[in-house]
Structure formats: C-alpha cells, structure tokens
Nucleic acid binder design. Structure first.
Lengths: 356, 356
DNA sequence: TTGAAAGCGCTAACAG
DNA sequence: CTGTTAGCGCTTTCAA
C-alpha cells in the first residue's frame, strides 16, 4: 500500500504520543474518553488508515487465513482478455462454473467471515511468478492448500511456521492437517452400482494419474471390477484440469472401433466434457454409453439427464478446514487432525437410472 | 503468522549479512553464484519463509489487491454451523449460489491471477469486527468495493492512500474509480418489453429502496410506465440481501385481494424467492403472474421456465476493476475512470415469452 | 560483490 | 491514563 499518514502524524496532530494513538485503536477502553475523541477525530481528519503490515509485523499475527487453490479455469483458457461474459453460455468453460474448487472455496469464505478472519487467495502452479505460495504463506496466520497444487515438502516447511490444512491428497504425519473423503471407497460404491444394479460389464475409465485423490478413485474402480471378476481397463489419461485434453482423449476413444458400454470419469469436470463429445458424435447417453463423474458439482445437476456421480460435501470441507486452523490458532489444539468426510452416490440419469 | 526463522538466522548460517540474504531472494543476479547457493540452501535447510508483512512494510507495496463484498449469503442464514452441504438442494440459499457478487468476484479472481496479484477478501457490514474494511485496506495495494457495503466517505478516505474502485453505486468525483452498468436505462428497456411486447398494464414492483443501483432500477421502471401513461406502483420493500424478508413481502402481496399481472423485481435473487412463494401458493408463472429479475445470475437460467431478466457482464465487471487498479498502480494513469458496461435484456419464460 | 545501518509503521512492555 | 522505547523482519542506500 502507498504510504499515507501514520501514527506519528496522528499523534502530532492530537498532541499525544504514538502509543496513545495505538491504544485508541486497539484498546479504546484504556484511553480517557476525551483523549480518545481527540485522537479519533485527528485520525479521521487526515485520513489515517492503519497499516496492517506494520501491525502484523509487530504483533506476529495478521488476522487472515490463506487459501491456495489450483486454478483449473485459468489453465483451460478462460484467462483470455475479456470473453464478454454477458453470454457465459457461449463461454465454453464458464458453463462449468462453479467448479469443485470454487465450491470448497465458498465454504472457506463463509467460515472465515463468520469467524472474523480475512481470506487471502493465491493460486497457480508456476511458482516463479507471484503470488507464489510463499507469498501468501508469509502473510497469513494459517494456510489451506489443495493437494497437488504445491509440493508437499514446501507445505511441510511452511507448517513449521503456521498451521496448514491440506485438502485431499494423502495423510502425512509431518505436521499437516488433512481434510478429505474416502475417494477409493466412494468410487468402489459407485462402480458397484453400475455393476450390480445395471449389470454393466464393459467399462472404460477416464482418469488422471497424477493427483493422489484421483489415483485412489481409479483404485476403487479397479477393486470393484476385480471383485466382479472383470479385468479393469487401463486409465485413459486426460488432465483433469485441462478440458481440451479431455476432449481429445474422449474423441480418440469414440473413433476407435470398440465403444465401451460405460465411461467412468475421475471427475465431474471430465464427465461433462465427455458428455459434450458424445453428443457431438451422436452417441446417446445413457442408452448407448452410460457416463459417471465424481465430485457433485452444480453443473452436473443441471444438465438433462443429471450426471450420476459421487457427491462430496464441498462446502463442509472448506468450513472444516477453517475451523481446524482456528482451533489450533486460538485454542490449545495439539495433534494433527485428519478428518474424513462422507460422500454419497448420486444416481442421476447418465448411468441409466430414471432421473429425478 | 507465527515467528519462524528470519533473515538473521539464514545470514548467520550462511555466514553472510542479512543484506545478502535479502538480495539473494529479490535480486539474485546481484549475488555471486556461489554465495547465492549457500544462502539458498541455508534458507531451505531451516525452513525460512520470508515475512510478507515485513517486506510490505519495507517496500510500501504488498502485491495484493483487496475485494470488499457484501455478504448476502451470510446474512440469510447460511452461516449455520454446518448445514451438511452434501445435499445443497435442501439448503435453501445454497440453491442461489453463485450470486451476483460471487460472479463478479470470480472475474476479480481470474484477473488477479492472470496478473500475478494475490487477492484479499473481506466482507460484512458490521465494521466493529475484523476484518473491517480498514483491515484489508491497510494490507493491499488497491481496493475494490461493492457500493453500499461501506460508507463512501470511508472509501474516499482510503482512496487517498490507495486506488479504489467502487462497483455499482453512483459516480463520485472524489477520487474513486467506478465500474457500473446503466441500471436505469436497462430497467426501462425491460419494462418496455413487458409493456409493448406483452401488453401488460398491471404491475407490482418488488424493490429495495436503499442501494443507489436499486433505486435507479426503480426509476427506470417508473419512467417506462409513465411513458405508457400508467401510474407506477410504489415499491414493495424487501431487503435484497435478506431472503426471508422477500418471502414475507411476496406472501403479503398474494394474500392481499388484488393480484398484479406482473411482478418486476429489483434483483434476480428477489425474483427467485418470489417464484418460490408463487409456486407455494399455486399461482402459475407466467400465465397468472409474470415475473422478472435483474442481474442474470446462473440460478435464473437454470429454472424452468427461465427467468426473464437483465444480464450484467459480471465477470467483466470484476476483471475491469482489477485492470483499472493495476493501470493506476503500475502505469502512469492520471484521472478517475468511470466505466459503464452494457447489459442485455434476456427474454426468458417467466415473462410469457416462449422459452429457449 | 558484500556489509553496515537506517528506517518502514505499529505494538507492547515498562515507566511515570 | 499516557509517554518512552525497543523491537517485529525486511529493503535499500551508501561504503567498503
């Protein structure tokens, strides 16, 4: 922030010491009413705005939490100068908003506001440019980060300074708190629905081999299949965050000669893209190909038929992360916390269930 | 943030001065390669995370922008401890997410990330608690605030320190930049559609007399009516941010003995609530009562029939605000900027147009 | 190329 | 109740 009037200026004007000015703002009850008035109006008259930086430096606290998220939309091209969002239906990715991370972020925001904390947002995977993780970490009292966005060793390093909650990923003992869902078990349940209730036996799997959560989903899928004595197909690789890569992969699948009966996708975002491609190729869902996702984002509920998926309690995930941070910050919390929230299989229309 | 290793610790370990440590991080090219290595690995080994606070204090810049938004959802009760968002359709207000402010925020976020700035979020109307506006203002290089969230005089005061963009509201010459749409003209166009294309003549208006933007909408509505020689009805007052107040108002309207042919609402959020109440009372839309909103939020596009409304380019509004800030910050911008973005009347089904 | 030293604006003892 | 004073951790001249 630009330099403006400081405590010194206010003090001079009010003819008191800087300590009194400071007290007037932080512990008004410790200052005589008359003095308080003088100081406050002096401050007002010169437009004094206390520097949160200086305050944070002096107190060792900032009153803000940080959220470091992976920026899916940014990567997929939504960062074009100005795509005129007046008609966001024509904006290919806008249609997918809010994404998984957006809904989690919403929970974080709501809980931060409730508890009187400001929230600092950072994002990106290119640590070269600001705001890199370090940049937000150095500025907040606690940090929430999506797994996979930033190296866990960096996160552990930061957690030596301030409490850190990692969302998703794996439980590590290294001082990081964790909030996650049982991706593996949930995907097993979803797959069993497809196997048992629908009797499908011919599967394809659209995955992303990198993030730990996504790997767990594939494992859950494979396990269900093996239990049914079906050999799990390999993952068709597509980057969960990059819509164009998903489009290519699904196109490739359709242009091959054997078409699966079911396409299980690692995320809703991928499933929704897949549905687009299927439609473009004139393939009917669910009668020709059934499709499922994972996450439970809003967009999946709003298409017809609705997307069969596993719903995560995204808002709760965000809220809980904030609560963990504040508990360790304000309370006398001790150990790492690893919370596993529950999910629910949502039987939409894209798997062949009757919708609604 | 908690106190961890500092430049001093790193300097001692690397056997250099703190200045060298600082240079190593900020101007690596000014440090001999060998020294750089020593410093960097020393820093790494003790888990050094530079304090953005101290840096900000010393440089007078923070590399972050602030967004101060009105927190509609919070007020309307979504701040209950944990409403289990697994089924957000059962969560009365979750259904309305993302709201107008959320979509604007999204634009702000995207542009901030593009330009390498972190974003600090604050919100609320109770200035007593943190994070009050001042708190985020003191911590950022530029501020974006929704009109009406905070007194404009405070905003003007802050704008003496850092550039400020006010979203909505009125153009003030006092050093505040503004981004807005022509609420009045847009509402006139919408009303004319109802008057001319549908021939409606019996109107009710659900408004909120406080915010300047909302007042302008009512004026636009009234003007269209007067031009058609119809006396504008008074505003049925309901707080735009408080859903329960809207529910009560609309109920009151329906329980009266004269039911209007059209209900024009100042915001989509109010219109959507109104539609709920109408449905509960067994009133058909649009055949018995036509309804219109204003904003163009996602929820309005996803109901059947779709909500007739005025679409604002919300994402663009957010992006533009950021650009204005960065232009004045980084460039040699001079004067206040007052940008007016264009809107479009969306003819949905709730006004009686054939939908789709 | 590196070091010494003076702040940046505020808080928090500790005196008075 | 108010003033003095010593930092908080980093950046940045100015010298060496």
């Amino acid at each position: 922030m630009a330099r403006g009037p400081t405590v010194y200026d206010v003090a001079k004007l009010a003819r008191v010491s800087i300590a009194t000015v400071s007290f007037a703002f932080t512990k008004p009850e410790r200052v005589k009413a008359a003095t308080l008035q003088t100081v406050l109006s002096a401050a007002e008259s010169i437009g004094y705005v206390p520097s949160a930086n200086a305050r944070g430096l002096a107190k060792g606290k900032t009153g803000a939490l940080g959220l470091y998220a992976f920026d899916y939309l940014l990567e997929s091209g939504a960062d074009s100068p100005s795509p005129s969002s007046l008609d966001s239906t024509s904006h290919p990715d806008g249609r997918l908003f809010p994404l998984y991370s957006d809904e989690v972020q919403r929970g974080v925001q709501l809980e931060c506001r409730r508890r009187g904390y400001a929230l600092m947002l950072g994002a990106g995977r290119n640590p070269g440019r600001l705001p890199s993780l370090i940049d937000v970490a150095g500025r907040v009292d606690g940090l929430i980060a999506f797994a996979g966005v930033v190296s866990s060793t960096l996160l552990e390093q930061i957690s030596a300074q301030i409490p850190v909650v990692e969302l998703g990923g794996e439980v590590r003992g290294a001082g990081l708190h964790t909030v996650l869902v049982d991706n593996r078990a949930a995907m097993t349940r979803l797959t069993e629905h497809l196997l048992i209730d629908h009797g499908y036996r011919d599967f394809a799997y659209l995955g992303d081999g990198r993030a730990a959560e996504l790997v767990a989903r594939y494992e859950g899928f494979s396990e269900a299949l093996r239990k049914a004595r079906i050999a799990p197909p390999p993952q068709l690789q597509s980057s969960a965050g990059e819509n164009s890569s998903t489009t290519d992969t699904v196109r490739g699948l359709l242009e091959g000669h054997t078409r699966p009966r079911v396409l299980v996708c690692a995320t809703d975002q991928q499933a929704l893209i897949a549905l687009d491609v299927l439609r473009d190729h004139g393939v009917d869902v669910p009668t020709q190909v059934a499709v499922t996702g994972f996450d439970g984002i809003m967009a999946g509920r709003l298409i017809t038929p609705t997307l069969t998926t596993v719903r995560q309690p995204m808002e709760d995930i965000g809220r809980l992360a904030v609560r963990i941070l504040l508990d360790t910050l304000e309370g006398d919390e001790d150990a790492d916390r690893h919370e596993i929230l529950s999910t629910a299989v949502w039987r939409g229309g894209t798997c062949g269930c009757s919708d609604g």
